[in-house]
């Protein structure tokens, strides 16, 4: 088991140290899980933007729509240009893009996020394995200590 963890000889740590390692690994697992959830939401948002950009292009010009002025007030409007869209680039910058460009843009963004999701998942799997290894060594040590105390 320990050899899988590479440089860390878990068996050489005492119970207190193991508990510390266990705790910090648990925290890492938690924060990684949180990060991954956030990333997945961002990914979904971007993919739905991408899909919507595509759908929007299929709408006929002149089509009547309702524009939200606020959450509860809508005004009538007509589509007059279904070939371009304003795209949020981040930090307050927006750019007018053709729908194809917009799709490409969202594709790029999604790829960056997917990369991060993959990396995060890998790290999470690793940390989980580490956590399990530490827990099992810790249990063994505690059981041994108990046996010693009993005899």
């Amino acid at each position: 088991m320990e050899s899988q963890e590479g440089t860390l000889p878990l068996g050489s740590l005492n119970i207190e140290q193991l508990q510390n390692v266990q705790k910090s690994t648990e925290q890492e697992v938690q924060s990684l899980t949180e990060q991954l959830t956030q990333l997945t939401t961002a990914q979904q948002r971007i993919l739905s933007s991408k899909r919507l950009a595509k759908e929007f292009g299929k709408q006929p010009e002149g089509k009547e729509i309702l524009l939200p002025l606020s959450g509860s007030v809508y005004v009538q409007g007509k589509l007059c240009d279904t070939s371009t869209a304003m795209v949020d680039l981040g930090t307050g910058y927006y750019a007018l893009k053709t729908l194809e460009e917009a799709e490409e843009y969202f594709q790029r963004r999604a790829a960056v996020i997917k990369d991060n999701v993959d990396k995060g998942t890998q790290a999470l799997v690793q940390r989980r394995q580490m956590y399990e290894a530490v827990t099992s060594v810790l249990q063994q040590k505690m059981a041994a200590a108990q046996r010693q105390g009993a005899s």
């Binding site: 304003m86 680039l89 981040g90 930090t91 307050g92 910058y93 927006y94 750019a95 007018l96 893009k97 843009y105 963004r109 960056v112």
Partner: peptide, 23 residues
């Protein structure tokens, strides 16, 4: 990270692209 992404996106735009700032 966010600014780097924006920088990269701005550099990909055509010279005559219309850019807006949300104020």
């Amino acid at each position: 990270t966010e600014n780097r992404l924006v920088e990269q996106e701005l550099s990909l735009l055509k010279d005559d692209a219309e850019v807006f700032k949300l104020i």
